[in-house]
Every structure is written in C-alpha cells, then in structure tokens.
C-alpha cells in the first residue's frame, strides 16, 4: 500500500525526474548493503538521504556516479537511469558519467595544489577550456558559484590545503562545479565543519538547486529539514520512506521513520 502511494507521487513529478533507480541491490562480498531500492530523484531539488549510520546512504549515493566501481568487492544490480539513459549500460564510460555527476566528500579533500589548479583540475582533464583565458573564466565562475571567490580571489596561487575546513569544503564544491555537472552528490559534506562553516555550506547548497539536482547525505535531521525539499529515509539497506521533507518530518507514514526522527533509533 505504501508502494502505491509512492508510485502516484512519482507520476506527478515525472517531467522533472533526473535519476530514476529501479530495484537496486548492492553487495559488498557477502554483505547485502542496499536491498531493492527504487527511487526517483528530481531536478532542481535538494534531496536528503537520512538514516542511522551503516544503513547504506553512502553506498546508494555512490551507485549514482558509479564510484562503487572503484571498490573491488562491490556488486551493483538493478537499473539506474540518468535522464532516461542507463548509467550501468556497458557502453557508458563511468569516467564521463562522473564528470556529469559531481561528488563532494565527507572530509574536505583539496589536492595538494594551488587553489587555481584545484578548480582547473576537472576542466583540464576533460578539455573544457580551449585557452588560458577560458580556463580563468571557468575558475572564476566556479569559485563564485562555490561562494568562496571573495575569500580567495587574491590568493589563487596559494595551496588549497592551507584554507580553513569550511573554505576547503566550499573549494571542493566549486571544484566539482567546474566540470559543469548536472547533479551534485554530497556525502555528509558538513560533518567535519564547525557551525558557521556549516551554515555557509548550507546556504550554498540552497543556491545550487537553481542549477543542479543536489543529493545530500546527512546524519543531521535538522540539516535535512533546513536544506532539502525531498527526504529519503534508509534503514538497514531498505528505502523505508521517500516523500516531501515536510511530510516526512511532520507526518511520517512508517513507524520506523517516526522512531528515527523522534530519536528512538539511531
């Protein structure tokens, strides 16, 4: 019965769907980490994945840009479509997919290079700029979108690792933006940041949804409530409930969701 209500929901938003996953299973060796998950992720929307740790949020997020391919023991089954195209099709090059589906990690991971080179990394390997002027332009645009331009514009040659934690994370977001992705995946992007830096990144996420589909894994329900329009609740590898964020937090359908958001399981 829950499945029915979900499917009607999906139909309503069908025009706007970015990712649609069908019956996805993920195994790490013998561990069954994701069980039969089907979900539609919308464009120009911030979607939050919440759930107790170990429930498979990161694993599912990583299926969306095939980062799981880099883990030897990981097997993914089922179908995931990006704009109607099967991203696990043998003809799809995961390398190109990852340029289209950018990823920001839990711990800020700037390369030990200059701020400029960090941002220019993606455009360089994908040949997005024909000359230095174009590259400069991409770097500036990305840093502006990453809401960090004002802080770094006069020290683009300084190492990216010398920035503060919050600045590093915004640098990493800008770096992901520089490859002109359509989707941004963020795995607990604020868990290593202090409250002020967190607020800055959340504000940035809110701005990003104008241009991108953003998927964010978070362990903070307040954060999910603040930044997202859609929320998916995972539990033990199952997608228990997926709905408008308001609905999930005010009127959860499943008892497990309710227990989690009221703090009884975690």
């Amino acid at each position: 019965m829950m499945k029915d209500s979900m499917e009607t929901k999906l139909d309503v938003d069908a025009m706007n769907v970015k990712f649609s996953a069908r019956d996805v299973q993920v195994h790490y060796g013998d561990t069954h980490a994701i069980k039969d998950v089907s979900v539609d992720i919308l464009d120009n929307t911030v979607t939050a994945f919440i759930g107790p740790s170990g429930c498979g949020k990161s694993t599912f997020l990583r299926t969306l840009n095939r980062m799981n391919d880099t883990i030897d023991i990981c097997r993914v089954q089922g179908d995931i479509y990006l704009d109607g195209m099967d991203i696990y099709d043998p003809n799809i090059d995961p390398v190109q997919l990852r340029a289209k589906v950018g990823m920001v990690f839990q711990k800020p991971n700037p390369f030990p290079k200059s701020i400029y080179d960090n941002i220019a990394y993606g455009p360089r390997i994908h040949g997005l700029a024909r000359n230095k002027a174009e590259l400069d332009e991409i770097v500036e645009k990305s840093l502006r979108r990453g809401a960090i331009w004002d802080e770094v514009q006069d020290r683009l040659d300084a190492p990216g690792t010398g920035l503060s934690g919050g600045q590093q994370q915004r640098l990493c977001i800008a770096r992901a933006i520089a490859t002109e992705p359509e989707v941004l995946l963020m795995d607990e992007p604020c868990s290593a940041l202090d409250p002020i830096a967190t607020a800055q990144v959340e504000e940035l996420i809110d701005e990003l949804k104008a241009n991108y589909s953003v998927v964010i894994v978070t362990h903070s329900m307040q954060q999910a409530a603040r930044v997202s329009q859609k929320t998916a609740f995972f539990h033990l590898g199952n997608l228990v409930e997926y709905n408008d964020t308001n609905e999930i937090f005010t009127n959860p359908q499943d008892s497990r969701t309710e227990s989690y958001i009221t703090g009884r399981i975690g």
Binding site: T70, M103, N109
Partner: peptide, 23 residues
C-alpha cells in the same frame, strides 16, 4: 580521499596517477 576526489571528478586511473598521486 585524494584518490576519491580525482576519480569523483571523472579522472581515469591513469590521470589520477599522473596528476594527483604521483606529485
């Protein structure tokens, strides 16, 4: 995390090696 960062930006393993790991 640096390997993930490079791969996540769409670098091949070879590009990751020459542009991030090796330096």
């Amino acid at each position: 995390s640096l390997r993930d960062g490079a791969l996540g930006l769409g670098a091949t393993r070879g590009e990751m090696m020459t542009t991030v790991l090796f330096p």
